[in-house]
Design a protein around this nucleic acid. Structure first.
Length: 728
DNA sequence: AGCACGCCGACT
DNA sequence: GTCGGCGTGCTC
């Protein structure tokens, strides 16, 4: 009888969860001779075909005519902790259990033998006939090291054929490459950093929590340059010393060469890297190394959360406030919150690192759910930039100009001192609105409610919301007056025009995601800026993070009010974060920096808090403003995304929820502005803010609502946006 | 995820 | 008249 609970013998039944959009595990009969336990990966018939699945439960199978389990895969069973995570994430996100399992389940191993990569080595005499290409290849191969053929071809900028010919000539020998080391042990004492007293203290506290091997969450807050990474690396080092695994989660874009270099400099080897571009065999081998416990440190994007760690001793979520942690298609989850849940399940400490923590994380810290550690100083004793406001109501640029007198002066001073300036305007294109001088016609997107943005360089009007593009006509489409169209408001392109007029002698550049020539060129230009090749940089959000510009001593924010009035309940928070980041670009090198923010509302709490340098003030002001506006307080918010085939349909579903008799209090319907991707795919979404009383179990409520609700034509998906741990 | 069923537009 | 578009539903 007790055997029934631990294993499904021949004649019994098992419930198998299949990694598809199914919410229930299906029951199958266990064939004679097979013994199955929970977590086993099996093959089962599903409809006309065979599928992989995981034994989720034993013996609760309904009677009747069940299909049989076809077989057991020769692979390690799913870890109970991972199963628990799948159950929890499915419950929390209201996603089908099977879809969540799909995130966690490894593909059954590919049993075709791995073909070793071939490498070449300089081994013989030069060929009888020497050509420039051959000479380059030979030079590149000097030193007698074994080099992958493709890498050598790339390095010598020759084709693979040249290398092949040199192999035939006997100049190169061809040998199988040794398997790339995927899990070389990092050395916790490879290069210990020099930490300030304050940093060492925080590092010691983090290391202690790793040693304690218990769940707890620490918010590690420190401005850019305060040494956050160095400090959490000490926690990672401690985990390595204990022989346990660490996961460093980061936004996909942050998995850069810079981070890897820093890791390698600290630990002597690269971390295991997990992101969407790691595919095929490499992915399989890394998974195996993680499951086997050989991979000690994994740095990965959000999907790394569902990897089968053997002995997870630490989770770090770098840049915890980043929106990239939100998965919006398929299973909709916030990786930071799920990381906390995984930490809880695995009894591992979790570190949330950020220079600009999100409000919900602050709330959790304030309530004592998270420990709050701060790194106040910048590393090397560098000072934070001085911040100042320019009141545009007094210092008003002339019509069609956007740079105030005070800012012009500051730029001039900087130019004379041969120091760099950054003008920040978070608006791509030339002008955000185009209208007809004659009849007042405004160019609006045919799909959305957004204005079309004038992109002069591309000679087009573009909707930044859904991607719609049209030609900029020469006459007004409404009144047909020729050449009557006029640009309203500034974008970075227009600002660059003004810079060229005001400072014709300065070397300037515009950097935005529209940069002609793509990401590669953009990277080169960022490098050029860092090397001081430009005097004035005009840029969007893109310049706010990542690259360090040591020569940048002035940051001018053209419109600090931008984004404060957008109706999005998180607008103020995002503005605060981006302004803090971009003003932090000033004075990262030898010389101190300063930042000037142009505003029409100098007493705005976001700006006064920013100027004060104390983020807590922003948080306090934001909380008060919310209360005054009748918005639900932080920590009691969740967002529900309702989608339908049309916006009207989605809206009506959303209203139906808001109206239903037992709905949680304070449901608000917001516009679809936060879901540009969904709009791109032709699906309109609504975002609801749901306020709950503490007693309401939001997930269970929504789940039941979805079951009995007005069966929508489209799909209803739920993303819980804030308040991750209230039901933990 | 696949695969079947089912109801409206341009074609041998 | 049908071929086929993909929306919807089902799989123990």
């Amino acid at each position: 009888m007790s055997d029934e609970q631990t294993s499904g013998e021949g004649g019994g039944t098992v419930d198998v969860l299949i990694p598809l959009g199914l919410d229930q595990a299906y029951s199958y009969a266990v064939p004679p001779g097979l013994s199955l336990k929970v977590g086993d990966v099996v093959q089962v018939p599903l409809g006309p075909r065979e599928t992989v699945g995981v034994v989720w439960e034993i013996g609760s199978g309904r009677g009747g005519n069940l299909k049989r389990v076809s077989g057991l895969y020769d692979m390690p069973p799913l870890d109970p902790a991972l199963m628990k995570l799948v159950d929890w994430v499915a419950w929390y996100t209201l996603a089908a259990k099977g879809s969540v399992l799909a995130l966690a389940l490894r593909r059954p191993p590919d049993d075709t033998p791995e073909r070793p990569k071939l490498g070449v080595r300089l081994a013989g005499a030069p060929p009888a006939r020497m050509t420039p290409a051959r000479a380059r290849a030979i030079t590149a191969a000097e030193g007698g090291l074994l080099i992958a053929k493709s890498a050598l071809a790339e390095a010598a900028s020759v084709s693979a054929a040249v290398i092949d010919s040199l192999v035939d000539a006997g100049t190169f020998s061809i040998e199988p490459m040794p398997r790339e080391q995927i899990a070389t042990a990092p050395d916790p004492d490879y290069a210990k950093p020099e930490l300030s007293e304050g940093q060492a203290e925080v590092a010691a506290a983090l290391a202690a929590s790793v040693k304690a091997a218990a769940y707890n969450v620490t918010l590690l807050e420190g401005v850019t340059g305060s040494g956050k990474t160095e400090v959490y690396f000490e926690a990672v080092a401690e985990a390595i010393r204990l022989g346990r695994q660490s996961l460093i989660l980061m936004p996909e874009i942050a998995l850069t060469a810079q981070f890897i270099d820093r890791f390698e400099a600290r630990f002597g080897v690269k971390p295991g890297l997990w992101h969407s571009a790691v595919t095929g065999r490499k992915r399989e081998r890394l998974q195996a190394a993680i499951a086997g416990g050989e991979a000690k440190v994994v740095a990965g994007a959000r999907s790394a959360l569902f990897l089968p760690y053997k002995d997870l001793g630490l989770i770090v979520v770098d840049e915890e406030h980043e929106a990239a942690y939100k998965q919006e298609d398929g299973v909709s989850y916030h990786a930071r919150d799920m990381a906390v849940v995984r930490g809880k399940i695995e009894s591992a400490p979790v570190i949330l690192a950020s220079a600009t923590p999100s409000l919900e994380t602050r709330v959790n810290a304030e309530r004592g759910r998270y420990t709050h550690l701060k790194l106040p100083e910048r590393f090397g004793g560098r000072e934070l930039p001085g911040l100042g406001l320019v009141d545009l109501r007094r210092d008003k640029p002339e019509r069609g100009r956007w740079i105030s007198g005070a800012l012009v002066k500051a730029i001039e001073t900087n130019l004379e001192a041969k120091e760099q300036s950054l003008l920040f305007l978070n608006r791509r294109g030339y002008a955000p609105l185009t209208l007809c001088r004659d009849c007042g016609h405004r160019f609006q997107c045919p799909n959305c409610t957004a204005w079309l943005v004038d992109h002069r360089f591309r000679r087009a009007l573009v909707c930044h919301h859904c991607g719609h593009v049209e030609r900029r006509p020469h006459e007004c489409p409404a009144c047909h007056t020729p050449e009557s169209l006029t640009a309203c408001g500034p974008g970075v392109e227009r600002l660059a025009e003004e810079v060229a007029t005001l400072f014709p002698q300065a070397r300037s550049i515009v950097l935005s995601s529209d940069f002609p020539g793509g990401t590669e060129r953009l990277k080169q230009e960022l490098m050029a800026v860092a090397q001081g090749e430009f005097d004035i940089v005009v840029g969007t959000q893109l310049v706010a993070k990542g690259h360090n510009f040591p020569g940048m001593t002035l940051v001018g924010v053209i419109d600090a009010d931008l984004g404060l009035t957008s109706g999005d309940p998180r607008a103020a928070e995002r503005t605060f974060q981006v302004l803090r980041q971009v003003t932090g670009r000033a004075g990262r090198g030898e010389k101190p920096g300063r930042a000037l923010l142009q505003t029409h509302d100098p007493s705005h709490p976001v700006l006064t808090a920013l100027i004060s340098g104390d983020p807590e003030r922003f948080y306090a002001a934001e909380t008060a403003a919310r209360e005054a506006a009748g918005l639900p307080p932080f920590g009691r918010l969740a967002a529900l995304i309702v989608s339908g085939n049309t916006q009207a349909e989605a809206e009506s579903h959303a209203r139906a929820l808001a109206r239903s008799a037992d709905a949680p209090a304070g449901v608000m319907v917001l516009g679809p502005a936060e879901a540009p991707l969904a709009v791109l795919r032709g699906r309109h979404r609504m975002r609801l803010i749901v306020k709950t009383a503490r007693e309401v179990n939001l997930q269970d409520y929504l789940r039941s609502w979805l079951k009995r609700g007005p069966k929508p034509k489209g799909s209803v998906r739920v993303q819980v946006d804030v308040d991750p741990q209230s039901f933990l």
